[in-house]
Design a protein around this nucleic acid. Structure first.
Lengths: 112, 112
DNA sequence: CATCTATGTTGACACACATCGAACCAACGC
DNA sequence: GCGTTGGTTCGATGTGTGTCAACATAGATG
């Protein structure tokens, strides 16, 4: 059976025409991943062991460090990442349920 | 004149850090869906019977008709939609493989 | 405790791109 | 011809991106 509590936002795109409000929320999530730098940062965090990574480990994406910080902030505002300071370093980790929800938007109900 | 590849673009975001080229291609697809109007248009086409819809059936999204045309063009350029003229009307339909590919990016290997 | 250094974040600004609509154009059916 | 459907061009406005500088926090060092 499917887990019904991991549906944060909207029905699959193939189910029906989204309402304006649904489209707004869904577009905001896609927008967070619509930048190459953010995608690289996100995949770096998502693929890191333990699902979390220090900023110092992932900031080699071709832009300056403040720019990295700006992009990480956008990913955090979109609810895709969470940050935590431990001592000198700041660690980011993914929010798995949001990722699953977005996947369901595209592929329809889970086919587990 | 350019025809977008339908081959699998990139590994899942959780597998490893994307390369710059992979991130560019992936970001372009997400960007196409990062606009509320485009999402509504896309979901309208994707949910239409037969997977295709006439522009006249889906152009009620709150913006002018030229704007609808603009957004449909972007979705087409991103490889998410294909268009075909049949007599008076132009029909749009989805590219299912691209949708599945994007879902795989988010959720990992397919669970079919 | 005071100070210095390393790590990240925030603010301000320039630059580029995206978005939108008015007007115009092309294809089709009558 | 004429009306309808949909696409294109163009310009104005808005939004995003990136860098520099300044600031905040944690740890080390004397």
């Amino acid at each position: 059976m499917l887990e019904p509590d991991v549906v944060p936002c909207c029905p699959p795109l193939t189910e029906r025409t989204l309402t304006a409000a649904e489209a707004e929320r869904t577009a905001a999530m896609f927008k967070a991943l619509s930048d190459p730098v953010r995608l690289r940062l996100f995949s770096a965090v998502a693929s890191a062991p333990g699902g979390e990574a220090c900023v110092c480990d992932i900031s080699d994406v071709g832009v300056s460090q403040p720019t990295v910080s700006h992009h990480l902030k956008k990913l955090k505002e979109a609810g895709l990442l969470a940050s935590e300071r431990r001592g000198t370093w700041v660690y980011y980790r993914v929010e798995p349920s949001v990722l699953a929800g977005m996947g369901r938007l595209l592929t329809g109900p889970a086919r587990v």
